[in-house]
Design a protein around this nucleic acid. Structure first.
Length: 560
RNA sequence: UGGGGCGUAGCCAAGUGGUAAGGCAGCGGAUUUUGAUUCCGCCAUGCGGAGGUUCGAAUCCUCCCGCCCCAGCCA
């Protein structure tokens, strides 16, 4: 794919794109090749979305392609379920790797040959030390390590031992192939890092063909080189692996010379983006699964109703840099609302119903009111909603003793029912416990559609549904999974929000919401954006709240 | 204490020697049959701190401070 001048000019301003621009200008590359390299040991989350958007984004902007490459070098942790989920989620996010689907495991034979090459060059050796011994002799952050007693083995012996490792002659952990670099290096990654370990484990792709597997460090850069990756983009914690990455590339007859660049991973307030923690949330039953709508996984966000375009917008907004940062979750919510405001049709749904009886509307009567589907998009048309003597409004929209700035319904007060009539509250009926259970109201027949011929104004407009026609529904309201802006990933359970899921069991929705199984996002007027959950049954729809509308009243009320 | 990075507003972030972009949040106001949306305005005499170089410094130099990552046969 060739990039247009315009695309290049309009590409974002960040240090990665600066580097690519410079490389292109200097003629170092004709085309850009990147890769997104997930390990299939968990589901993709929004932090991965940053990497996906970056890797696929730059090749779209500057010309080239991005490979999807599974970094499947540890069969003890990887599963086919994750492989499938990752492909599905990358596609859902809106990216296409074309034919460029690869696996580090595709290169196992080549990597093995390169390991022998290193041995023949005297740059790698088989170490018989135990894992404990290796740890003990690695040194500390401030002290040099000591060389292994097996470091001086002959090339012939090393080759023999390594081949026998491959042949399965030794149990797990018995020996390891190490690079011979510098046990005194200040960079611990250079203190003779392990290149191959013995793992008698079945691999999702290679089965039992191998019992030795390359380490990340030995696999990653070489895979990049094989695939002709020009810019290998990864997160900051790999920064001090770069000297090792380069060392291997320098000493191996690889077909190309990739370069690694590091950027800061995404952190979000009230969220944990750690595969370990996310896995524990699922396995420990703290959430209903990888696609629980409270999860920051792409599967969770999808089920929650977040449009992929909103995630892409969000990622564009937060930028790419090298400073560790924690992005306000509000920023993601903004991107979601921005997208959904444009696309979601409006409907009325009452979450916590309070019955309203229109006393001067006769009981046998009913009518259909025309309601617009999207106020900013006339092409979405209108629909007809039933109006009758008995209605439901939102409990929160009535107060018996309203404070000064509350301008919804109250005794004696007139408000508008959206698209319908102006009504006035005559009486609040209470039960024995003193709770308001019903409102007796009157309507003004002259105000059909919502406007008074005499031009009088009302302070607010309420959403409502017809008691006789509305359909009962379950609505799931999601709150942050964690209580603190920066949860402790170590003891995450202590920071879990016990109220992250609020189930509203008896909401009432417009009938067409129950009938529509398209799963398209809708806005419940004055409340938020919702989508139909797959738990819906024909007689009982279930809706997930994707995100609430901005609510300046709630904010003001909370302030007092 | 060794090595590698990073510090620009409450948050994210541009800026690469010529006098602090943009977005989120917040605060005012206008419009509004969603307390939504939209629109307008305000929001760093200041760039972790102190010195220095320069006509001029967030950008260059020196020293200091703070934060993050690394001692897996995980990635």
């Amino acid at each position: 794919m060739a990039a247009s001048e315009t695309a290049i000019r309009e590409a974002g301003q960040d240090f990665i794109r600066d580097i690519i621009r410079a490389d292109l200008a200097a003629g170092r590359h004709e085309t850009i090749v990147t890769r997104f390299p997930p390990e299939p040991n968990g589901y993709l989350h929004i932090g991965h979305a940053k990497s996906i958007c970056l890797n696929f984004g730059v090749t779209g902007e500057f010309g080239g392609h991005c490979n999807l490459r599974f970094d499947d070098t540890n069969p003890t942790k990887e599963e086919q379920e994750y492989i499938d989920a990752i492909e599905r989620d990358v596609r859902w996010l809106g990216f296409d790797w074309g034919g460029h689907l690869y696996h580090a495991s595709d290169y196992f034979e080549q990597l093995y040959q390169w390991a022998e090459h290193l041995i023949r060059a005297g740059l790698a050796y088989v170490d018989d030390q135990t894992q404990e011994e290796m740890r003990a002799t690695r040194g500390t952050l401030t002290e040099a390590g000591t060389e292994s007693p097996y470091r001086g083995r002959s090339i012939a012996e090393n080759i023999d031992l390594f081949r026998r490792m491959r042949a399965g002659e030794f149990p797990n952990g018995a020996r390891v192939l190490r690079a011979k670099i510098d046990m005194a290096s200040g960079n611990i990654n250079l203190r003779d890092p392990a290149l191959y370990r013995i793992l008698h484990a079945e691999h999702p792709r290679t089965g039992t063909a191998w019992c030795i597997y390359p380490s990340y460090d030995f696999a990653h850069g070489q895979s990049d080189a094989i695939e002709g990756i020009t810019h290998s983009l990864c997160t900051l914690e790999f920064e001090d692996h770069r000297p090792l990455y380069d060392w291997l590339i320098d000493h191996l007859p690889v077909p190309s010379r990739p370069h690694q660049y590091e950027f800061a991973r995404l952190n979000l307030t009230y969220t944990v983006l750690s595969k370990r923690v996310l896995t524990e949330l699922v396995r420990g039953g703290h959430v209903a699964g990888w696609d629980d709508p409270r999860m920051p996984t792409l599967a969770g966000l999808r089920r929650r109703g977040v449009p992929p375009a909103a995630i892409r917008d969000f990622v564009k907004r937060i930028g790419v840099a090298k400073a560790n940062s924690v992005v306000d979750i509000g920023m993601l919510e903004f991107s979601i609302r921005e997208r959904l405001n444009k696309s979601a049709q409006r409907r009325m749904a009452v979450l916590r119903p309070l019955k309203v009886v229109i006393e001067n509307y006769s009981s046998g009567q009913s009518e259909e009111i025309e309601a617009v589907n999207h106020p900013e998009n006339p092409a979405d048309g209108t629909r007809r909603v039933k109006f009758g003597r008995e209605l439901y409004i939102e409990r929160d929209d009535f107060m018996e003793n309203p404070p000064k700035k509350f301008f919804r319904l109250a005794p004696g007060r007139e408000v508008r029912l959206r698209y319908a009539y102006l009504i006035t509250c005559r009486e609040a009926v209470k039960n024995k416990a003193g709770e308001v259970v019903e409102l007796r109201c009157s309507y003004d027949p002259q105000t059909r559609g919502g406007n008074a011929p005499d031009g009088r104004k009302v302070a607010s407009t309420l959403h409502w549904v017809s008691a006789a026609d509305a359909v009962p529904a379950e609505v799931r309201l999601y709150n942050a999974l964690f209580l603190r802006p920066e949860p402790n990933a170590g003891d995450f359970a202590a920071d879990l929000n016990p109220n992250s899921l609020e189930v509203v069991a008896d909401a009432r929705v417009e009938p067409d919401l129950a009938a529509d199984t398209s799963h398209a996002a809708v806005q419940f007027e004055r409340q938020g954006y919702f989508c139909r959950d797959r738990d819906s049954t024909p007689d009982r729809p279930v809706f997930n709240r994707t995100v609430g509308l901005r609510d300046s009243w709630a904010k003001a009320a909370a302030k007092g």
